[in-house]
Simulated scan of single mutants.
Amino acid sequence: MPAPSSPTGQSAIRPAHELIAHDGYLSCCRFIDEQSLLTSSGDSTCIFWDVEKNEAITSFVDHGGDVMSLSVLPSINRHIFVSGSCDATAKVWDTRLGKCVQTHAGHESDVNAVQFFPDGNAFSTGSDDSTCRLFDIRSYGAVNVFGNDKIVSGVTSVSFSASGRLLFAGHDDSSCLAWDVLADGKGLAFQLAGHESRVSCLGVNSTGEALCTGSWDSLLKVWA
């Protein structure tokens, strides 16, 4: 029997699984492995799922506002993840313990984006307060703050270069800024300009040779 067609004439693809438990919008989802998934939501929680069983295993409920983003520790044992929330904090969680193990404060507004450093010992945050911060989970604190008085737009997304030397940040004002992680956080490494509306997402490819930015201007741009 042929696959059912959509109104456009293309074959419709049906979902293999449907996961239901959140009470708010879904802001982010990340696979841990082929059977495990993490999600974050406007209901102020994150959920750890068994995809094959269509079952919510653990709910993480310590945030006091919408959870906007999450990132999974880049290692073989992917039990640790970090989340960013509208309560202006980032929290580190352990799925084995089912609870928060670190809370990182410092931002003055919503934390919209989080991303682990390539070696897993630190993570970056991006906030509506127009700054990014680099938190070290070993020293339990911020080791750099990226921003200056000329930057007044909120940060929507963050990603590291393959080496971790550069931190890329997408902004509400259509810009993408690149920061040198080892330098003074007030000076930019460079800026990418080309979008006509807010940069809503970005990511670096696995080889580190290209950056892709997505914008409300309906365009994706690849920078090499």
Rank of each mutant, 00 (worst) to 15 (best):
F135I: 11
H104V: 03
L177S: 00
R78V: 01
S109A: 15
S197H: 12
P2C: 15
D43V: 13
C29F: 09
F117D: 04
R133N: 07
L19A: 03
F135A: 03
R133Q: 09
G126V: 01
F48D: 08
S163C: 07
D87W: 06
L192Q: 05
L26M: 14
A16D: 09
G208R: 13
S6V: 02
S139F: 01
L167Y: 07
T213G: 00
A88V: 04
S59Y: 13
C212L: 10
S36T: 04
H79P: 00
L73Y: 08
N205S: 09
C46Q: 05
P4L: 15
F146V: 12
R138G: 12
F135E: 08
G154C: 06
W179M: 04
A12R: 03
T213K: 07
A178N: 04
C28F: 01
E108A: 12
I76W: 02
L26N: 05
K150L: 09
F190D: 05
F146D: 00
V181A: 05
D129A: 13
F117I: 01
H22V: 06
P118M: 04
T58Q: 11
S163E: 08
I32T: 00
S27W: 07
W216K: 08
S71D: 10
E209T: 14
I32D: 04
L26D: 13
K91M: 12
A189H: 10
Q35L: 08
Q102M: 14
A3P: 08
G208C: 13
V72A: 00
E209D: 14
S59F: 02
L220C: 13
T39D: 11
S157I: 10
V82T: 06
I57P: 06
S41P: 01
V181P: 00
C100R: 04
G185F: 06
N112G: 12
S174E: 00
H107N: 09
F168N: 01
M68F: 12
D62R: 08
R133Y: 02
S197D: 15
L219V: 00
T58K: 11
N144S: 03
H195K: 15
E18N: 09
L19G: 09
D94A: 06
S175Y: 07
C86V: 02
S130H: 12
S41I: 10
K186R: 04
V111R: 03
A88F: 15
G154W: 09
L166T: 07
S174I: 00
K150T: 11
C176R: 11
L177T: 01
T8D: 15
V152N: 08
W49K: 05
S127V: 02
D217I: 15
L182G: 07
I80K: 06
G170F: 00
P7Y: 11
V51G: 05
L219A: 09
S36M: 03
Q35I: 12
G106K: 12
S206C: 14
N205Q: 15
R96D: 07
D180C: 01
K150A: 05
D119F: 05
L38E: 02
A88K: 10
